[in-house]
Design a binder for these strands. Structure first.
Lengths: 335, 335
DNA sequence: CTGTTAGCGCTTTCAA
DNA sequence: TTGAAAGCGCTAACAG
């Protein structure tokens, strides 16, 4: 592999000059630049990124922490992050928290120890305090799916309350009044906010929130499945279920179908997130769009802007959800 | 940030000795080691990985190329790769080909230019020739989901032929004889192999392969959807559909349900891959298990073994599929 | 078992 | 506009 030295020798200029043309920095005469380019081409020169990093104290890498690598949720986000950063010639190092407190923390430290120029963190478990401290550290950090006091300007998040409102209002508008709710784990802010939206929607109609129609799930298919079973078992009637995400909705619907309940004829369902798959099932799931790709891109933009001084990109924190009406909600049956 | 120099000064030993204890290399007396450890702890010393890389000519990073970051398929694979490598303190740099020839190639070059110690490549479009050349390059490469002549020992792949056999035999065993087949794109070897398995299964029963019951899809939901529509339009009767992957099966089933066809009462379906989601739809999809996670882990093992000299890990190339019987196949109806 | 000494390949003052 | 030279923080002979 040719080094910068080979190039400088062949081109008959100094190392510094070659470095200047490689990085487009400083003033270089057109003639010199051409000589250097020729030499680089001739030698098929590729800068050694490691050496660049050591000398410039910049790794050109950004660490991305997600809670799950599998599952339908983070793929679209990572896709955008990867595209945006690779286009800027930065590489993304991934680490997964695997929904485990220790592993999540360890993943952050790992990324930090790798000398990432910045971190994009979608933390599932890490506490606000930890994140605040992390953000006050030396490595710039942007948070996805969280908003933490004191570091709002580094948080890219969805208006979950509004999403919860949209979902429940939609069901309410179809005439349902006995509405079950399968929530995400309440230690998560987004789960709490979505639930709050649900409660507000009920309140708008003068309805009371009923604990007998509430189940705290885990944001996964299993949780929806179990939640649905639990709800049914209580014997308290309801004609619709609002689920705090699509995965739980899928699990819950699966249980209904197993039990011979028809969806939406017997029970209506609404989900949240708009993950790809439930578009292809029957009934097609009505849900709330969570623009997670856009949020991923925005996080990448933040890094590009704040860390790599790209002034072209725009940034904003807060995203608004939209209702996606498909087929899983209809008015309650007469029985 | 403390450097190795600070540690050596504080501990009263040389740089080399500190390096030795950090890397557990060479002989160091217990007493000296202790002094160094104390100094490191006191200074909260973390080796600079970039400097380590430059000096040792090793980046401790492995590049992973997948065709899609979203979608249900690669997540489980990446999950395993990430876990295995991070446990060994290596980091994974991801790049996506986005199902585009130019981008896929560019992604490889990008990873290479990043000085990865090894590459794990799940190439969708890259030609065998390109891959052969890549494998003969300086950076070790392991291929997933491909087997290429001349570099078999670096290929981790599934016995797709066997998978195709299993899927079609299952349908056949239920008494179907008019069986449609929705294939993956035939420029892909795995698609061709699965199809070949189908044909062999037909032949075992003395049945002829009928072009009128064949559709070449794209391995995505859309392809299954369109394929099903095309098949139905031809007016040639069939009672079962074998799909070369679960995504296409989902799309195809979605179309059937839209058209009022019942699955499996009117049409039976079998998929391939055993991705997570179709377990939760109705009917639960019968499919062939593609142990993509295991293959991911195996690829990581190969890297650990061949590149990082870990002798603990095992390795084998070829994986066998298994039929997963659920609910989407039943005997053809009497009509 | 420990220390000395060259670099690894590049960036970046500082002078010219 | 260009070059000389001093590192970036660490590893790896080599010598002792």
């Amino acid at each position: 592999m040719a080094t910068i030295y080979d190039v400088s020798f062949l081109a008959g200029v100094s190392l510094a000059t070659v470095s200047r043309v490689v990085n487009n920095t400083g003033k270089v005469s057109e003639k010199t630049r051409q000589k250097v380019h020729d030499a680089m081409a001739q030698l098929d020169y590729r800068p050694n990124t490691i050496a660049q990093s050591l000398a410039s104290n910049r790794s050109n890498s950004v660490g991305v922490l997600v809670s799950q690598l599998d599952g339908p949720f983070y793929g679209p986000m990572m896709r955008e992050v990867e595209s945006a950063l690779r286009a800027a010639n930065k590489h993304v190092i991934i680490a997964a928290g695997h929904s485990d407190a220790a592993q999540e923390k360890e993943a952050v430290e790992f990324l930090l120890s790798r000398g990432c120029d910045a971190l994009i963190v979608d933390a599932e478990i890490l506490s606000n305090e930890y994140l605040q401290e992390l953000c006050s550290g030396k490595t710039p950090v942007v948070l996805i799916n969280r908003h933490v006091d004191g570091i709002e300007e580094r948080c890219v998040h969805l208006n979950n309350l509004q999403g919860g409102l949209l979902a429940s209002r939609h069901v309410l508008a179809h005439g349902h009044s006995r509405i079950a709710y399968i929530s995400g784990p309440l230690f998560k802010l987004d789960a709490r906010e979505r639930l709050e939206g649900h409660k507000q929607a009920l309140a708008e109609k003068g309805l009371e929130f009923d604990d007998a129609l509430f189940f705290e799930g885990d944001f996964r298919e299993e949780g929806g499945f179990e939640g649905m079973a639990a709800l049914l078992e209580r014997g308290v009637p309801f004609s619709a279920v609002v689920c705090a995400n699509d995965q739980m909705a899928s699990g819950a619907i699966a249980l209904c179908l197993e039990r011979g309940l028809r969806v939406p004829e017997d029970i209506s369902f609404v989900g949240f997130d708009n993950i790809p798959f439930p578009r292809y099932i029957s009934p097609k799931l009505t849900t709330v769009c969570n623009p997670i790709q856009d949020m991923g891109r925005m996080a990448a933009n933040w890094v590009l802007k704040e860390v790599y001084d790209n002034r072209e990109v725009s940034f904003h924190h807060r995203f608004e959800p939209e209702l996606v009406v498909r087929e899983s909600v209809q008015p309650p049956s007469a029985n």
